[in-house]
Nucleic acid binder design. Structure first.
Lengths: 178, 178
DNA sequence: TAGTACATGTAACAGGTTACATGATTGA
DNA sequence: TCAATCATGTAACCTGTTACATGTACTA
């Protein structure tokens, strides 16, 4: 159910096309959700059927018409209700940790390379979130009520990447001691 | 594909029944994977078909026979190959962060309660991982090669919970300033 | 001239969730 | 006596992934 709500959350601010939503999940809000465009198009059709979003078709030439999706009052009521509903903590699932768990099956250097590569990937993500931070939340003391929430959410993404990087360093250091 | 490999990883040490695997994913290795028993039974049947695991039926009375699953040489070869294959970083998905993103839709106290509740849940998880740490890895300096990998994997789970707790504290402090 | 961005979509398949079903034993 | 643990499983459904399809405009 949460993909629906994640989409509604992005529509609170402003209408989006499916294409735009896919880009946002892939980028600036990647620290809390992700989905492919196929999933999003399917979900948007369902949301429209439920009356939670409204669609405005903007004709274009040479490429498919844009379909601007806005949240309806009903959609906003549903989203608000969901936000106020207690939920569980998200279960973890991570390929790299499964690999680490049985890391002794492969040469040490193979694991170290993969760890180093992941550390770089997390550093890239962190750098990107830092850019988002500077662009949208430059003066933390002067944020609107809404942006305060968004900034704190982004903080989770920043911390998460920092923590991954630190763990990679911890493991690499443990390996180098030998 | 990774559920298959997560199961194989647990079978490297010792044979397990589907029931036991479900309990482990739910408990001591919950910091890297999780799955319901239905998923596991379905996957084990597939793994047997592929020749990656072998099944021994242990008759019981009054309850269904136990089916002990062991990893085969073929399964071990497949697992080793997969471990050596580079992969992507895991995408994030978290309901609570979606809720935070649009937290201004509900009363401030509602969000603070939910945050506090999540902080407790993460504290419980952390306490559990600390128990696992004390039970299985009491003397870090004297671990076997295999246990060293497992300990470092558990470290990821511990750091992850600590980081969540710290973020919850950060957000709650930001709210209390007002 | 090759690749990326724009913008939508269908179809098939794989992975994950929820509900239901059985039935003995153990502990509070 | 009620709930939890043990131990398996089927069926229906929902969510997520991968491949394919179309076709323009802009940039390197």
């Amino acid at each position: 159910m949460a993909l629906a709500h994640a989409i509604l959350a992005l529509l609170v601010d402003s209408p989006h096309t499916g294409y735009e939503l896919a880009k946002e999940f892939d980028g600036s809000v990647g620290y809390f959700w992700n989905a492919t465009h196929q999933q999003i198009y399917r979900e948007l059709a369902k949301l429209e059927g439920q009356g939670w979003v409204r669609v405005e078709v903007i004709p274009q030439e040479g490429r498919p018409d844009r379909k601007r999706h806005s949240i309806t009052d009903l959609g906003l009521a549903e989203l608000s209700h969901w936000v106020a509903t207690p939920g569980d903590i998200a279960p973890m699932k991570d390929d790299l940790l499964v690999k680490m768990f049985v890391g002794n099956l492969v040469p040490r250097s193979t694991m170290m390379q993969e760890l180093t590569r992941h550390q770089h990937l997390h550093e890239e993500r962190l750098a990107f979130y830092r850019q988002v931070e500077q662009k949208f939340f430059p003066e933390v003391a002067q944020l609107s009520q809404q942006d305060r929430f968004r900034y704190l959410t982004l903080r989770r993404g920043i911390r998460y990447e920092q923590d991954w990087i630190a763990w990679c360093a911890e493991v690499l250091a443990a390996f180098e001691e030998e």
